[in-house]
Amino acid sequence: MESGDSKIWKSILKAQSIASRFIFWDIGEGKISFWHDQWGLGDHNTFAETPENNKLLISDVWIDENWDISKLFSLAGDKTAHVTKIPIKKTTIGTPLWKTSSTISPSKMLYSHLSNLFSFDKWRWGKPIWNNFFTPSVSFFLWRYLFNLLPLDDILKLKGLKLASRCQLCNREEESAVHLFFQCSYAKEVWFILGKNFHVNWRDCIDIVDFLHIWRAADILDSKLAFFSMLVIWFLWTTRNDIKYQNLTPVPSTSASLILAYFTRACRIMGLRDVFPHPKESRMATLVRWQSPPFGWIKVNFDGS
C-alpha cells in the first residue's frame, strides 16, 4: 500500500489478519491451500514448508478417497494422526466457516479483537454527528472530517497532486484540518466569539477533543448538545468553500452569528430553553496547558483542595 491509497481499503487490509483467525475451511474437494488456508489445524507454520511445495493443495496429499499417509507425514509430522481424522468429501465444494463461541456472538468476538487493533477515541462521536438536526449530507461530511477524509490540500498532496497550498480563511498558512478549523486566525476568532456566549474560552483549542474537554469542564449544557462543536466545523467548511469557489469575503462575526442562529433554532426544536448560561451562574472555563519553568527555577504544581 502507498501513502495516497484509500484509507478505507487500508483499514480493511489492517483488519484482515485479525478476521482471518476466526475463519477456517471445510476442505470439501481439497482445492484450497495446504499451507495458507486454515482448515482446522491451527497454526500451519509449524509444518516444514519449503519453496518447492509452497503452492501445495490439500487434494495433492490424497490418493483417491484417502490421505496419502507417507506424503502427509513428511509434511505434517506428528500432526499426521490429527489430519487423517478429517473426512474427505470430494463431492462438495470447500466452504469457509466462522468459528463460533457458545457464549459470545461472532460479531462481538470480532469487535473485541478489532477494538484492540484500532485506536478508537474515548469520545463517542455517533450522536453528535448522526442526529435529527443535521441533514444526511452534513452528517456524512462530519464523519469524513473525524476520519480525516476531507479533500483538503494536505490530503490531496498525499494522493500525489502537486499544488500550492494556502488556507482560504487566513491566506497565510498551508491548508490542513487542524489549521483550517482551529489554528487559523479566522477560525480562532469565530471560536472566541462563540465562547463568549457560553462564558468559556475556546480560542486555544487545537482539536475537537480540546473543545469537548472545555465544554464538559464548564458544565453549562446538556451533554446532548455536544453537536454544537460539529456545527461550527460544518460552518467553517462552508465558509472556506464560499471563499474558494464564489469569491465571497465573509468576516468571523458573520459566521458566528449564523452558527448561533442555527444552534438556537435547533435547540428550540429539541425543546430546550435557556441554552445560553447566565453570567452570574457560570464560570469561565479555560484550557490550561502545563509549561516548563524558566531555567534555574523549580515549578511546583498542586491542586486547590
Rank of each mutant, 00 (worst) to 15 (best):
F141N: 07
K280E: 15
N171M: 10
K157V: 10
A261R: 13
K55S: 12
C167L: 04
I32V: 03
F263N: 02
I27W: 04
T286V: 11
N301V: 13
W62T: 05
G304M: 10
E29K: 09
R289Q: 08
D78Q: 10
N131Q: 06
P106T: 08
E174D: 15
L231D: 05
W297Y: 12
T46L: 13
C167W: 09
T46D: 09
D242I: 04
L117K: 12
F24I: 07
G296S: 03
F192S: 14
W130Y: 04
E2W: 12
T95C: 09
K89P: 01
T46P: 07
M284W: 15
A217E: 14
K108T: 08
V190N: 04
K162C: 10
P128G: 00
C167T: 01
D204A: 11
S185G: 10
D222Y: 07
I86M: 04
D204C: 10
T80Y: 11
F22Y: 15
T238L: 15
G42C: 09
D210N: 09
T249E: 14
W237L: 01
N201F: 12
S229T: 06
M230N: 03
W35I: 00
S305C: 12
P252A: 05
L158W: 12
Q16T: 04
W234I: 00
L236R: 04
M109G: 07
C205D: 02
R172Q: 11
S257G: 08
A266N: 07
G304R: 14
W234H: 08
S282L: 05
E189V: 00
C167A: 02
I63A: 04
V300A: 10
T80M: 11
F120L: 11
D153R: 06
E175S: 00
R265D: 15
G40Q: 02
K99Y: 13
D26V: 06
D43E: 11
D303V: 09
C267V: 06
I88P: 00
I32N: 01
N53I: 00
G160E: 07
S107K: 13
F134I: 01
L236I: 03
M109R: 14
